[in-house]
């Protein structure tokens, strides 16, 4: 039930915005995230924007993997969190 869909903001009108994903457009409520602006990637749950997707995040995810592999001292294909 907590499924949320990523969409892109196309237009903002008061407390709602037109959002688009895969060619489908629909109005969404932005009272929980009123600072959204055109071009923002957001996640929609039950007709509401619940969060903006952070454009830096992809890099952070890669950084998290880099940290993981560095800690294990491997080449990115193995892991051993059992501390063998």
């Amino acid at each position: 039930m907590c499924l949320a869909v990523p969409m892109t903001i196309k237009r903002v009108e008061g407390n709602r915005a037109l959002a688009e994903a895969y060619g489908v457009e629909r109005f969404v409520n932005i009272v929980m995230m009123p600072e959204v602006s055109v071009g923002d990637r957001v996640i929609i749950h039950a007709g509401f924007v619940i969060e903006r997707l952070d454009p830096e995040s992809a890099r952070e995810m890669e950084a998290a993997w880099d940290e993981y592999h560095r800690a294990l001292g491997d080449d990115g294909t193995t892991g051993r969190p059992d501390g063998e």
Binding site: H69, G76, T77, T78, G79, D82, E84
Partner: peptide, 12 residues
């Protein structure tokens, strides 16, 4: 690479 990381884990 990530899938390999998960699959190759050895748990004690």
């Amino acid at each position: 690479s990530q899938a390999g990381a998960l699959r190759s884990l050895r748990l004690e």
